[in-house]
């Protein structure tokens, strides 16, 4: 699987950042072995004259096709890291390479274009459009990504069928349970067939049964299609389906780079 072509030049050199000394690993990413490579990522927040680190010296690899969890206590910087890896926030220092593309080399609109075609987002609060029907919520994402008219409607219905909600296509989000809303959000995230799915606490607003359903759905979709899933969660149930788990505390990955990830499955 390759990144959807976009109209900017691919970065084929190691990023000229703090991570420049780790060019070998970046090269791995460029060669396609890694879906996500972060090197020396820092996020500094400033409050008046006072500076503090939201993230410090983050080095992280995520293999293609893996389900990777980001775990840690509240305030540890998980969501900030997810925002940076998803190209929504720009780090204060360091480099982030997704699907071989160095995001730190892209301008704002190029980043938006990259996100649109390569990343599907799932949010804790679902973030569906309440005025649109279920099928329109998925359809609108497809339309934004270039699939138009009847093809978009057909594809939207297909995606809803994949998440088991084809029969709810004409309903509005207000008519759905929390679990069903999250399944719609998953269908929307899959629109345009992105290679990376980034999810922020996808089960946090769900009851146990709905949470399980969403977890199983994410695992099925990841494994069947070979997508990379990066997920921020507090939910220990998800550890069972993850390939790797990374712990974050006080803005830093625990221990050394080699030890921060916990291999759960071979």
């Amino acid at each position: 699987m390759t990144a959807t072509p976009i109209n900017f030049q691919m970065n084929l050199t190691a990023p000229a950042t703090k991570a420049a000394g780790q060019g070998m690993e970046v090269a791995d990413s460029l060669n396609g072995a890694k879906a996500i490579v972060a090197r020396g990522v820092e996020m500094v927040f400033q409050n008046g004259a006072q500076k503090f680190y939201g993230l410090k010296d983050i080095n992280l690899d995520v293999n293609r096709g893996d389900i990777q969890l980001l775990m840690g206590p509240s305030g540890s910087g998980k969501t900030t890291l997810l925002s940076i890896l998803g190209g929504i926030l720009t780090p204060s220092a360091g480099s982030v390479c997704l699907l071989g593309q160095d995001l730190t080399r892209l301008n704002r609109s190029q980043l938006a274009n990259f996100r649109l075609h390569n990343i599907g987002f799932i949010f804790q609060e679902f973030n569906l459009f309440p005025a649109l029907s279920v099928v329109e919520n998925v359809e609108i994402a497809l339309e934004m990504k270039g699939t138009k008219g009847k093809a978009a409607r057909r594809e939207a219905l297909h995606l809803l069928d994949q998440v088991g909600l084809a029969d709810r296509a004409q309903k509005h989000p207000r008519d759905l349970s929390g679990g069903q809303k999250q399944r719609v959000a998953i269908a929307r995230a899959l629109a345009g067939n992105p290679q990376i799915i980034m999810a922020d606490e996808p089960t946090a607003s769900l009851d146990s049964q709905s949470g399980h359903a969403v977890i199983n759905l994410l695992r099925k979709l990841a494994k069947e299609s070979g997508r990379t899933v990066l997920m921020v969660t507090h939910d220990p149930r998800i550890i069972d389906v993850a390939d790797r788990v990374t712990y974050l505390e006080d803005g830093m990955l625990q221990n050394s780079s080699a030890a921060v990830t916990h291999q759960l499955s071979a």
Binding site: L111, N113, F121, M144
Partner: peptide, 16 residues
């Protein structure tokens, strides 16, 4: 605003 932010996060261009 959150809906517009969602669109922006998804990568929808500002002009849209």
């Amino acid at each position: 605003l959150k809906e517009f932010a969602t669109l922006k996060a998804m990568g929808v261009p500002d002009r849209v």
